[in-house]
Amino acid sequence: MADFLWRAITAGLLLAVVAGPLGCFIVWRRMAYFGDTLSHSALLGIAFGLLFDLNLQVAVVVSSAAIALLLVLLERHKSLATDTLLGILAHSALALGLVLLSFTPTQIDLQAYLFGDLLTVTSSELLWLVFGAACALALLLTQWNGLLSFTLQSELAQVEGLNVARLRVLLMLMISLVVAVSMKIVGVLLITSLLIIPAATARLFAHSPEQMALGASLCGCIAVLGGIAASWFWDTPTGPSIVVVAALLFAVGSLRKA
């Protein structure tokens, strides 16, 4: 089979594995809108990267991390409800990104960033993904109990000696990192779905947080393989196909459970 296909499959599976447990935290902590905000603002990173001639991956990682930290700060002194705040940030970042992109010297394939272009993943992009996924997985494994404890009751976790401020920032940075490196795979408009849908599917059958996290990774992998297969055989767009397969898994799971 072609090299590009292997790269696409590897990239997709890596993302699915790390998106599983992270997606669980997004579902448990009701942060879906947060993921959306980060992914929408990722386009802003691309625009800055092109304008100032930076490495695009670095630009996206840095801008996502900056937006995540900004959100942590804004949440602390909140004068608006969090969902309103996130809505404002998400869409103004997306709009600003689109406006700035019109000033860039080189024209880019906007479609690829909005909906992903998994089949054109390059070796260097794959390396970035391996790096991002490895960091996120290592952090998730070592901080798992702390993150769970903090998700359940942050004050109890704090009294028990956890540094909850650090855990909060850590979780947000991990999500922003994964969002940044996975832009190419499903696109900014669909990244959140790959985090949430597999977690929601795994939730139907899981009896422990760990089962749910692993199940979410597994569902994500099936969705990635199914989406790439659909794309290969029927020439459908890859990113959206992955999300459609994930949604189908969720639908089937819900029906079986009901």
Partner: peptide
């Protein structure tokens, strides 16, 4: 410490 509230999200399967 026994906090006043423990609201576990329904989506978190926890024994």
């Amino acid at each position: 410490y026994m906090p006043q509230r423990l609201q576990v999200d329904a989506t978190l399967p926890l024994s």
